[in-house]
Write a protein that binds this DNA or RNA. Structure first.
Lengths: 233, 233
DNA sequence: CTCCCATAGTGGTCGGACCACTCTCGTGGA
DNA sequence: TCCACGAGAGTGGTCCGACCACTATGGGAG
């Protein structure tokens, strides 16, 4: 009588569920160190290879973190850890799904910006302002892209919802945005982006949530609309 | 002169990036079959074990699918495949992050319901209606939960954005909702839920997006508010 | 022509070996 | 007494080779 669960799915799958359950039930706390791979494998009666695959799976999910020579640890289980893989969705999506992704981003980003308008601190506002200025001061696409990302990241953080910020981070992953911009920038997009960022910044400064929502929605919607036409006939 | 990339990170990590790149660049199409594990390992000059870990990682990301005895295939790369892991976030989140998660859900769900009001077909409306009726006809918590999930799933599908539907699916994962409901149901939540579902259904029938948005936001906000009080002092 | 099953090929699992890295603890010197 | 440092034990990372479980295919029996 080893276990009540004889076999369902692969042994690796079982191991994954097992560890996930340990965390969900609180038997493993965030930051805590797990037993060694060898121990865990022996404990579940599986080989170390299979256990390693399970650990790898949980690692990419952002649940575990393996430190070479030290041990395996549970991550802080914060939104950022768990939603890191979200970026691959954006990186591997194409065609109509890109538009869907932007639609989701538009919904979240506009709400986040509205929340930010109500909650943003002076320091955060200054940081936003800095990125606006930096973006206006250069013509290097690389640098513009970087400040564009930072601009939105700062606002998402000011909204006060880490989970939403992490999702938006994934939806704005570097390679994703770079891909979209490649063709978009040819139509005076830089100037337009600067104008729209300025509008968002004004709304934030005025602490006007509705204006901020509208400005952000328009900003993302602009790209979304352009992308939609690119897919048409 | 094997490769230009000598070593960065673990070999497994390299393999993951390699395969991801193959897909991103279109060298691997959705549904296509990959070379065997042994081939891939030899091709990248790594062991089969490491290659298996890489494949496992991409499998949990929803990018690859391994069929025992047959081969490894690229998934359809649809939103559902890629966002399956999203559910673990909901399952492993606790405390304040649960509220954040519900806030995100409220934002997306209300918008999805509004979109559904404008786009829903007669057949879809009938399906929604069926779940409302079924939910009113039973008092078994299990069954109620199932129809509750199906109700929202149907609406999300009617909104016409698969990506959003997949995210909402993750945010409403069974274990997640079960956990929240456990304490919530004691306060006449069933009756309230039925009332709110009825309101949403009415708005859908009337094809009234704004009413639908408000009803859905209130519905999710109700639970959100309750959860918030549970964490208070 | 159809059906079935032997078989080759695939992913899944195992055990062991060795390497690369980290951390600790005891030793030696200052 | 205290500190620096180095050897060692312990950990994850990688590799190998073998075998098992399952699938698909094609050729032979009916």
């Amino acid at each position: 009588m080893d276990e009540a669960a004889p076999q369902k799915g692969t042994v690796t799958q079982r191991a994954i569920e097992e560890i996930k359950a340990m965390i969900a039930e609180g038997r493993l706390e965030p930051g805590q160190r797990l037993p060694t791979e060898r121990d865990l494998a022996a404990r579940l009666g599986i080989s170390r290879s299979s256990m390693r695959e399970a650990i790898r799976a949980l690692t990419v999910m952002g649940v575990l973190e393996a430190r070479h020579g030290s041990g395996i640890y549970v991550t802080a289980l914060e939104a950022g850890d768990l939603l890191e893989t979200f970026g691959v969705v954006a990186d591997l999506s194409r065609g109509p799904r890109l538009v869907e992704l932007l639609e989701v981003r538009r919904i979240l980003e506009s709400t986040a910006t509205a929340l930010a308008a109500a909650r943003i601190t002076e320091d955060q506002l200054a940081a936003v302002e800095k990125h606006v200025a930096a973006m206006n001061a250069t013509d290097d696409p690389e640098e513009i892209l970087a400040h564009d990302l930072a601009f939105h990241r700062e606002i998402a953080a000011a909204a006060g919802n880490e989970t939403m910020a992490a999702i938006l981070e994934g939806l704005s992953s570097r390679t994703f945005r770079a891909r979209v911009w490649r063709g978009y920038q040819e139509e005076g997009a830089f100037a337009r982006t600067r104008r729209e960022h300025a509008a968002i910044h004004r709304a934030l400064t005025a602490r006007d949530p509705e204006a901020a929502r509208a400005a952000a929605a328009a900003h993302v919607g602009e790209v979304e609309e352009w992308l939609r036409t690119q897919l048409g006939p």
